[in-house]
Design a protein around this nucleic acid. Structure first.
Lengths: 145, 145
DNA sequence: TTCCTTGCAAACGATTTGCATTGGA
DNA sequence: TCCAATGCAAATCGTTTGCAAGGAA
């Protein structure tokens, strides 16, 4: 985990009067160590010390409200979370159609710029105001192919 | 609903020995009339004659297995379905961060071509074999802004 | 007649919530 | 000290499934 990220989160939470407790640090550490979004259930297994599911859900809700983590809705009704892009950098997702795992991927800057331009252009469509975009690439991961 | 679409579905199901019953026709009609993906719960309200939820779920499962509809996983653990792209054409989604509704949108051909090229290029990354892609544009819809 | 489909109700699994206890600033 | 955070158990909610009845070939 990058100490810089931890410091940024510490400050963000402090500014919002949200406590950065031990349990919340654990969850952040696990998300930071992951190479993609994680569900509450997946996190219990990856935490240094296992926390009750309800605490993980509450922690994720708090961190999401604070803008530190972002939810992604995936297969089987699972909600997976990852650190927000202002902490980890902008990226997209490789979604395995077989096993449902999600992996982060970055795309070339030049293309990213075009994508951004296109997305803001969409704003004209039906009065929609875009705030962000996400490209999901579906396919088969290494393990499932 | 486009009769052509209905005919295509009819044939597809027939070829797979899957019955195209009245209930299934109703669900297809509702999806066809919708301007974006719909969850089972949303469909009950939009059907001509209300069907029990369990039947809708089963119908959606059958249609998905037959390649006629495709699931999208969205907010609050809701799974929304829409007719497959070979029936309606390739498109992307405008997702409202406020109310969670999803609307279809098409992007310029030129950009779509680049997107496709980029996505297949990703294949080199970590042995991932892309089969499709989806661009989700998040923002605020007309009603929520 | 023979399966497939449907309805209803019960079962499931992910997520949420009430409440009493513990912990942090 | 005092309010927020946590653990546990019970409650929700979307979705799935077992089983008996209805429908199409």
């Amino acid at each position: 985990m990058y100490p810089a990220v931890d410091t940024q989160i510490e400050r963000t939470l402090y500014d919002q009067d949200v406590r950065y407790t031990e349990g919340r640090r654990q969850v952040v550490a696990a998300l930071s160590a992951a190479d993609g979004p994680r569900s509450a259930g997946e996190l219990v297994a990856e935490l240094a010390a296992p926390l009750p599911l309800s605490s993980i859900y509450r922690t994720l809700a708090v961190l999401a409200a604070a803008g530190v983590v972002v939810p992604h809705y995936s297969t089987k009704g699972l909600t997976r979370y990852e650190l927000a892009e202002w902490l980890t950098g902008h990226h997209h997702h490789l979604v395995c159609a077989e096993c449902g795992t999600v992996e982060d991927v970055e795309i070339p800057d030049a293309f990213e710029r075009e994508l951004r331009a296109l997305v803001s252009g969409i704003g004209e469509h039906a009065g929609f105001s875009p705030t962000s975009h996400a490209l999901e690439i579906e396919g088969r991961c290494e393990g499932c192919s």
